[in-house]
Every structure is written in structure tokens, then in C-alpha cells.
């Protein structure tokens, strides 16, 4: 294993993040504050409690997941798409590195950035509402696994995309709706029975439910199922990436 190469890619990607640290830091703080003003105070004041939890606290896990998922995808997809776009990918392709090492470098960096932003949101949320963290270790595990699996997905999108429009397409048309409809701001038990069943086909439901369980010890779906879902999603992404690297799809001519 070329650990030096993994570290080099990781550092290079992180330096891009540090160059724009203020934006990276301020943007989630601002958006989280806005969510709390709108959903927590304006609308949330009319919703007393959800499953015995104050609405402001209830949306914290969903808010973190929303940002972490979109950030993981956008960081990883941009990270690998940009070298393709400007042509510097030649360096990766001609270096003595395996694709596994390339993935570890890019996905590791994208997941780290998302993790950082997730932590910032968690801290910002703590300024607005009180919430417990019933299972801290499980919370960290869910957060890390979500960052990693969606960074893997972002990496696939970055390889697939032929232009910047395509780079935005999947996050905008698929991921954001799935996250919003995945119970970020409500419990799926609040939906009519038919929609509850339909919602169960949304993989994000399992992530948010599991993550929320780690805070409030209450979940829409069993925690084991949530872990299974995220593990399955990670395996699926790894499988696709393995295939991409075997065939050189959209990387090597």
C-alpha cells in the first residue's frame, strides 16, 4: 500500500478546504441558524412535541444529516471531477498508485470535511436548543459511516459527470428530495399509513432514524435495520467503484 500517496492526496484535498475555511465554517453556521429561526422558532413553536421531544431538538439530527450528506457528496464529487476537468488527472493515472489508494485519499478527505461541518452544526444547534445524546458512540459511528458512504457516492458521481451540470444533477434531483422526504424535519409516524410504507423505500429514512435514535433513544425503524441499510449502501458504492476501477470507465481511454 502506497500510504505516502494516500496522505499526499488527502493533504492536497484538505488544503483546498483550509483555503476556504471561513466559507466552510460560516456557511453551515448560517444555514443552521436559519433553519432554527424558521423551523425551530417560527413553525416549531406551533408544533409542541414530536414523540415527546421538543420540535427544535427533534430536527437537530435531521439537520446534521442533511448537511453531512450533501457536503460528503459535493466534496468528493468535486474533488475527483476537478482534476478530470482541468486535466491534472494525468498525474494520478501515471503515478504508482492503485485506485483503492486514490479512493482512500479523496473519500477520506471529503468525509473529513463533512465530519467537520457536521460537528459545527451540532455545536451551533446546541446554542439554540437543549438536546441529549443518549448513545454518543453510536452517534459518532452513524456520522462517520454516513460521511464515508456518501463521499463514496460523491466520488462515483464525480467520475460519471462529464460537465458541471451533471455534477449537480444527482445531488439536486435525487439526494436533496430523498433527504427532505427521509424524515429530516418530521417523524414518519406523522404520515398517513400509505406514505409511511412508501417512505420505507427511501434509504435515507434509515440513516436519519438511526442517527436520531443515537440522540433520543427513539427511532422510526429498528436501529439494526438502520445500520444494515448504511452498511449495504456503503457496500453498493464500493462495488460500483471497484467496477469503475477495473474497467477504467470514464477515467482511462
Amino acid at each position: 500500500m502506497n500510504w505516502g500517496a494516500i496522505a499526499a492526496i488527502y493533504r492536497f484535498e484538505m488544503s483546498r478546504f483550509f483555503r476556504t475555511l471561513m466559507q466552510s465554517f460560516l456557511s453551515p453556521v448560517l444555514s443552521t441558524s436559519l433553519y432554527f429561526v424558521v423551523f425551530g422558532t417560527a413553525i416549531g413553536s406551533r408544533i409542541e412535541q414530536v414523540e415527546g421531544i421538543s420540535y427544535g431538538a427533534f430536527i437537530v439530527p435531521g439537520l446534521i444529516m442533511l448537511s453531512v450528506i450533501t457536503q460528503s457528496i459535493s466534496n468528493a464529487s468535486f474533488g475527483i471531477y476537478f482534476p478530470k476537468f482541468i486535466g491534472t488527472i494525468y498525474e494520478l493515472l501515471s503515478a504508482p498508485v492503485t485506485f483503492l489508494e486514490i479512493v482512500l485519499g479523496y473519500v477520506g478527505a471529503a468525509a473529513t470535511k463533512a465530519l467537520f461541518i457536521g460537528t459545527v452544526i451540532l455545536c451551533t444547534a446546541a446554542l439554540f436548543v437543549d438536546f441529549p445524546i443518549a448513545h454518543p458512540l453510536a452517534m459518532v459511528l452513524f456520522l462517520v459511516l454516513t460521511c464515508l458512504s456518501f463521499a463514496l457516492m460523491g466520488f462515483i458521481i464525480g467520475i460519471w459527470a462529464k460537465n458541471f451540470e451533471q455534477l449537480q444533477l444527482v445531488p439536486l434531483l435525487v439526494v436533496t428530495p430523498l433527504v427532505f422526504l427521509g424524515g429530516s424535519f418530521y417523524s414518519i409516524t406523522m404520515l398517513p399509513p400509505v406514505w409511511q410504507t412508501i417512505t420505507l423505500f427511501n434509504p435515507v429514512v434509515y440513516l436519519i432514524s438511526g442517527f436520531r435514535w443515537s440522540f433520543f433513544d427513539a427511532a422510526d425503524v429498528p436501529v439494526g435495520l438502520s445500520l444494515l441499510a448504511i452498511a449495504g449502501f456503503t457496500c453498493l458504492c464500493l462495488g460500483v467503484i471497484w467496477w469503475i476501477f477495473r474497467t477504467g470507465w470514464r477515467i482511462r481511454s
Binding site: 502506497n2 500510504w3 505516502g4 500517496a5 496522505a7 499526499a8 492526496i9 493533504r11 492536497f12 488544503s15 483546498r16 483555503r19 476537478f82 482534476p83 482541468i86 486535466g87 491534472t88 494525468y90 498525474e91 494520478l92 503515478a95 504508482p96 498508485v97
Partner: peptide, 25 residues
Amino acid sequence: PQEVSLEPFEKVIKTVRFSRGLFGH
């Protein structure tokens, strides 16, 4: 390479260090 392909926002020394690191040195 024939094409001038470089990360535009990176510093010269960092991009050279990166190349060395990529080869595991």
C-alpha cells in the same frame, strides 16, 4: 504532459511536494 494542466489555486511548492508524495516518497 503536452497540455499545461495544473491546479490554478495551488501554490507552486505545494503542487511539487504533492507530486513527490504521490510517488510515495
